[in-house]
Simulated assay, not measured.
Amino acid sequence: MDQRVERPGLPLADLVATVMEGYADRPALGERATEPATDPDTGRTTLRLLARFDTLTYGELWDRVGAETSEWRHHPVPGRACGRSATGPAAVENVAVEQRRGGDDNRGLTALPPPVAPRARGRG
Rank of each mutant, 00 (worst) to 15 (best):
L12H: 12
W72Y: 08
W72I: 14
R52N: 08
E60C: 05
P113A: 15
L15I: 05
P114F: 13
P118C: 04
T55D: 01
M20Q: 03
A91I: 11
V95D: 01
P115H: 07
P8F: 11
R4P: 04
R100Y: 06
D14W: 03
G66R: 13
R48V: 05
V16T: 12
A120C: 09
D104W: 05
P11S: 10
G83Y: 06
P113M: 05
Y58W: 13
V65I: 11
V5I: 15
E93G: 15
G79C: 11
Y23V: 03
C82T: 15
G124M: 06
E98P: 01
T87D: 15
E6M: 07
D39R: 03
V16R: 04
R107D: 13
L10S: 12
V97F: 11
R7L: 11
E6Y: 05
T45R: 08
G124K: 05
E68K: 05
D41Q: 08
P8H: 14
T38L: 04
G59E: 04
D104F: 10
G124L: 10
A86V: 13
G22T: 05
A67C: 03
G102H: 10
A90I: 15
R84T: 15
L49K: 09
G22V: 09
E60R: 11
E68V: 15
D63S: 06
L10I: 13
G43E: 07
D14V: 06
P113T: 11
V19W: 00
D41R: 08
A33K: 13
D39A: 01
A111Y: 09
N106D: 15
R84G: 05
R101Y: 02
Q99G: 13
T110I: 12
L29F: 02
V97Q: 08
P89E: 12
P8G: 05
R101L: 14
L29M: 04
A86F: 09
Y23K: 09
D104M: 09
A86E: 14
G66S: 04
D14F: 05
P114W: 11
G79M: 08
G79I: 08
P36L: 07
L61K: 02
R101N: 12
G103A: 13
D54M: 01
A111Q: 05
L29Q: 03
S70P: 01
R80C: 07
P76W: 06
A28S: 04
P40H: 01
R7H: 08
P89C: 08
N94T: 12
P8I: 13
G22C: 06
W62R: 02
D25C: 03
F53C: 06
V95N: 03
R121C: 10
A90Q: 09
D63V: 08
G30V: 07
A90E: 14
G124T: 11
P78T: 09
A37F: 09
P11R: 08
T46K: 08
R107I: 10
D39G: 02
V97L: 14
D104P: 10
L109F: 00
F53K: 10
R4S: 09
E93N: 07
E35R: 15
D2A: 14
T45V: 13
V97T: 07
A120Q: 12
A37M: 08
H75M: 03
T18F: 02
E71G: 06
R52F: 03
T38P: 04
L47Q: 13
L10C: 07
V65Q: 00
D25S: 10
S70C: 03
G102S: 10
R121L: 12
A13T: 15
T46W: 02
A67M: 06
A13P: 04
T42F: 00
